[in-house]
């Protein structure tokens, strides 16, 4: 089971949890396991065409999957996936 770290803005769609364990041997499988546990996340991770949204980056450990094998990137049980969306707050 890989661990997925859920960022603050998305925790409300993951039952308030900051991390979720999910099965799968690739990024797409692990994310499918995540969204089947928490269906409300789906719309926030994927666009209508089913592609990962461009303001949501996925990391396996500390590497951006865009520079690995994208969603086919292999995931081992000891790996940690991070979902890192853009946040803009600062002044207000």
């Amino acid at each position: 089971m890989a661990t997925i770290l859920i960022p603050t803005p998305l925790r409300q769609y993951a039952g308030g949890q900051s991390s979720v364990d999910a099965t799968g041997s690739s990024v797409s499988e692990v994310l499918a396991s995540l969204t089947s546990q928490h269906p409300a996340l789906k719309n926030h991770l994927y666009n209508d065409e089913g592609r990962l949204r461009s303001f949501v980056n996925i990391y396996v450990n500390d590497e951006d999957i865009r520079y690995l094998d994208k969603e086919k990137t292999a995931v081992a049980a000891a790996d940690t996936l991070s979902i890192v969306p853009s946040i803009a707050g600062g002044a207000a």
Binding site: P9, H44, S54, F55, N57, P85, S86, A88, G89, A92
Partner: peptide
Amino acid sequence: YPEPPPPGLVPS
């Protein structure tokens, strides 16, 4: 982040 999120999807 090549593109910003659509307005309304990310709260301020």
